[in-house]
């Protein structure tokens, strides 16, 4: 009995040292990672709606979207929001920019880990450029009655992207309409 307690104690010491080292390294890297993510998000937003000034808006369900305004006239140029849904093997996250009429300006896949060679091709412009100019009701893959041509061999991924964007766009639109046309 005593022997096993001793073994457990030795293991505890090893684990304690390891967690101490990891905690220290985490304090070094965590701020860099957080800052990099924030910077990436800002860069992506500005790429979607160039030349706009972004204001954070909190929706009633707690999610956040951004209002893009013209820096001079303060006129609304559009909105950007994140849409995400489960694809084939990962959660696919998309950042979407829409104009005030909720026609898509551009989309950017910000995070995915789909099958290389198939679903992972969703980041290529030949797929994402199809979304440009689409209205909410067109945001379906062609098998579901929309206009988006899915990636060959990756209908699930393509469908998940189209559906997640459509759902989120409707949510954001309703939110804005409720807010008295703000």
């Amino acid at each position: 009995m005593k022997y096993y307690l001793k073994l457990g104690f030795i293991l505890l010491i090893f684990c304690a040292i390891a967690s101490g080292v990891l905690a220290y390294i985490n304090t070094l890297t965590a701020p860099i990672i957080a800052e990099r993510k924030a910077r990436e998000a800002i860069e992506t937003r500005s790429a979607l709606i160039p030349g706009a000034e972004f204001h954070e808006v909190q929706a009633s369900d707690g999610s956040i979207f951004y209002e893009a305004r013209d820096p001079e006239t303060q006129e609304i140029m559009g909105y950007t929001f994140n849409a995400s849904d489960l694809g084939y093997s990962s959660t696919v996250q998309t950042m979407v920019g829409v104009d005030p009429d909720f026609k898509v300006i551009a989309i950017r896949i910000v995070d995915q880990a789909e099958t290389p060679g198939l679903g992972a091709n969703c980041t290529s412009p030949s797929f994402t450029d199809q979304y440009k100019g689409l209205a909410i009701e067109d945001l379906y893959v062609n098998k579901d009655g929309g206009v988006i041509v899915p990636i060959a061999g990756a209908t699930i991924t393509s469908r998940c992207i189209a559906n997640s964007i459509r759902k989120k766009a409707i949510e954001v639109r309703d939110e804005i309409n409720q807010g008295g046309g703000e």
């Binding site: 073994l7 030795i10 293991l11 090893f14 684990c15 390891a18 080292v21 990891l22 390294i25 985490n26 890297t29 965590a30 860099i32 990672i33 990099r36």
Partner: peptide, 26 residues
């Protein structure tokens, strides 16, 4: 101690992997 060498190795290895993971992410 030979009896718990495998868990100790795993702790050592896992720590370094986590370090690589965090440093690479940064």
């Amino acid at each position: 101690p030979p009896k718990i060498r495998i868990p100790i190795y795993i702790v050592v290895i896992a720590s370094f992997v986590t370090i690589v993971d965090m440093v690479m992410a940064a």
